[in-house]
């Protein structure tokens, strides 16, 4: 399987990475090289094999329904949350105007 320039452009758009023509030209053969190489996985008969779900046998732990139990995962820290924002105003994050 190989990807065309148009497909790469579409993937880049889906991944929200703007790409100039020259960059796309460079990327297409690189991606095709990688995709050709991973193609060999198709050789493996995986009938009846379950895809891996947990790397190490372990079960999903659930936490108790307690607000702000641990400050690391608590709310009520707006200043911290906004501290690194490129545009923060009146307690909000600012983004270019969105028309829905």
């Amino acid at each position: 399987m190989s990807v065309t320039r148009e497909e790469v452009a579409k993937i880049a758009s889906l991944a929200r990475i703007r790409m100039a023509d020259a960059e796309l030209d460079r990327m297409v053969p690189e991606l095709n090289g990688i995709l050709d190489w991973v193609e060999q996985l198709g050789e493996v008969d995986t009938a009846g094999v379950e895809p891996m779900t947990a790397v190490i046998p372990n079960t999903l732990r659930l936490r108790d329904d307690v607000v702000d139990a641990d400050p690391h995962t608590a709310g009520g820290r707006r200043d911290d949350v906004l501290a690194n924002a490129p545009a923060a105003e009146h307690g909000f994050f600012g983004v270019p105007k969105v028309i829905e």
Binding site: V38, L41, G42, V44, T46, V49, E50, P51, M52, V55
Partner: peptide, 15 residues
């Protein structure tokens, strides 16, 4: 399925 699911199955086989 062709890529991700297959890769995760192979991961099972590697493990």
């Amino acid at each position: 399925d062709a890529y991700y699911t297959q890769a995760q199955k192979i991961r099972t086989l590697v493990a």
